[in-house]
Amino acid sequence: MENFLVKGGRNEFLVPYVSLDSSGGVCEISGESSLEYTGEFYDQIVGWLKQYSIEETKTLTFAFKLTYFNTSSYKAILGTLRELKRQQDIGKKVVVQWYYPEDDSDMLMDAQDLMESAEIEMDLIAYQPED
């Protein structure tokens, strides 16, 4: 199964870094998310996750390390979390980690709300942001 990589960056839109690694079962999305075609962007991630659950048996660890996302991305991230929850429900080993700057109470609140809406357990991990 092929890996999926988006280098991300800030241009007209805020494109997050995305790495979906099938060999290690390690996935990460980080940076900022405000996209031209939000649904299509996250559909690619969900599609990859669905394929992984069909082809692979290794534990999947998905780390969210976003520092900003707009409300369209919020909705798409919720869809991604619901796919991860679906995989857990059918017996797949899935671990979800959500990293947030230790001084960002809004991001922690968003993570808690997404966790509740997706009905999925996430490890909420505070980190000290770089200056």
Binding site: N70, T71, Y74, K75, D113, E116, S117
Partner: peptide
């Protein structure tokens, strides 16, 4: 507000709306 966001984020997008409706 948090509960309201959770409610409307799952609603179908309103006619004429181009965002997620929760801005």
């Amino acid at each position: 507000l948090r509960k309201y966001r959770a409610e409307i984020v799952d609603r179908p997008t309103e006619e004429g709306s181009r965002g997620a409706g929760v801005g």
